[in-house]
Design a protein around this nucleic acid. Structure first.
Length: 376
DNA sequence: CGGCCTTTGAAGATT
DNA sequence: AATCTTCAAAGGCCG
């Protein structure tokens, strides 16, 4: 659980997160400067908990996970300023500045192949966008100024202060195919689902509902092939004929993953890097350099991601994908092997603290300056 | 061609 | 309860 070890007692960042940057004066200053916003964020998180508790359908399976997750994230102690701050946030982040009406605003078809992240477009969809094509991706048309002002074409209901959570299941029903027994019966508008995902078992949720987060459970290569060809009906059909395997529902993206997804293209453009490992290091640093408010936006997005995911797949568990690796050619023995490998690696890394150095060497970065100029 | 690298955070598993 | 492990994304690299 993210917890700040610094004086603020904030719970946003992970312990190691603060440790890692403790020796960075710049970061330290930032933390102090942002003492207030840190508290704000904590309050925000607390408010999110309350929102979830209030808005969740108590009879649905959704409640179980939502409360669990948020409570872990937002301890009670941070609820103190809830009333005041949450109002402010309603009027601020939730209402005007941040993705109002999110996540159920429909924008350009997110499932077009060309809708992927582009450094030049300045419009970056955040969620499961490039290939998973999560529904939320279509609703987050933000780039540099993501979470900026409210689109004028918002449905009245969407732009109202009560905001993002009110009547969510109803809102959802207009855009998302919810499983029977979930949060309600739906007659989804499928127009923005790619045809390939509407075709048959390989793209179908176990409930029979297609969803872009559902991918074939096979290996990475095949997965990528599938993605590349997902708009080619024939290709998909052939695949389905060959191996109609049980689809895998991917995990919802967390805040940092959403941030990465949005910023990756920028970093690639700025730093002319392509290797994800290097890019992710940069993004990790930038993530820490974000203000609490900026991070809060992504936490909020991630929270909605999870909420949506829960509503779409009430019975889904992260454990499903633990086992998904076994569903293909892999055996349980392989799974154990992988587990062991990871464990061994971690032990190795414990005795080898110089991994960042290694990485710099590996990616040809300057060992002295740590990071290339713009890539901080 | 499968797996690694690298990041943070969520969630399940284990101790 | 605390700690550990896995998985989300990404794409180049390596054996």
């Amino acid at each position: 659980m993210p917890q700040l070890s610094s004086g603020g007692g904030d719970d946003l960042g992970a312990n190691d997160e603060m440790i890692a940057f403790k020796d960075e004066g710049e970061q330290e200053e930032k933390i102090q400067e942002n003492a207030f916003t840190e508290r704000d964020l904590a309050d925000l998180k607390s408010s999110l908990v309350n929102e979830s508790e209030i808005n969740q359908n108590p009879s649905s399976a959704v409640v179980r996970r939502g409360q669990h997750g948020e409570q872990r994230g937002f301890p009670d102690k941070h609820r103190q300023h809830l009333d005041g701050v949450s109002k402010q946030q309603d009027g601020g982040m939730y209402k005007s500045s941040a993705y109002p009406g999110y996540p159920f605003l429909m924008l350009p078809d997110p499932y077009l192949p060309n809708s992927s992240v582009s450094p030049t477009s300045n419009k970056v969809s955040v969620v499961q966008q490039s290939h998973g094509m999560h529904p939320l991706s279509s609703i987050l048309p933000y780039g540099n100024d993501h979470f900026s002002s409210s689109p004028p074409h918002l449905p009245t209901d969407m732009s109202q202060k009560s905001g993002v959570h009110r009547h969510q299941s109803q809102d959802l029903s207009g855009y998302y195919p919810l499983p029977p027994g979930g949060v309600g019966q739906i007659s989804p508008s499928m127009s923005w689902f790619p045809h390939s995902l509407m075709l048959g078992p390989s793209g179908m949720h176990p409930t029979g509902i297609p969803h872009p987060a559902i991918v074939p459970p096979t290996g990475k290569q095949e997965h990528e092939q599938y993605e590349r060809g997902m708009y080619m009906k024939q290709h998909v059909e052939v695949k389905r004929e060959k191996e109609p395997k049980k689809p895998v529902i991917k995990k919802p993206l967390n805040a940092f993953m959403l941030y990465m997804k949005e910023m990756r293209a920028k970093v690639i453009a700025e730093c002319t890097l392509k290797e994800s490992a290097a890019i992710n290091q940069i993004l990790g640093r930038r993530w820490h350099a974000l203000t609490r408010e900026e991070q809060a936006k992504y936490y909020e997005l991630a929270r909605k991601e999870r909420q949506l995911h829960m509503q779409l797949y009430p019975t889904w568990s992260a454990r499903d994908n633990y086992e998904a690796g076994l569903s293909g050619e892999k055996s349980k023995a392989d799974w154990g092997k992988k587990k062991r490998r990871k464990r061994e690696k971690q032990q190795d890394s414990n005795t080898d603290p110089g991994s960042p150095k290694k990485c710099r060497a590996r990616f040809g970065l300057n060992q002295q300056t740590d990071w290339c100029g713009p890539c901080r």
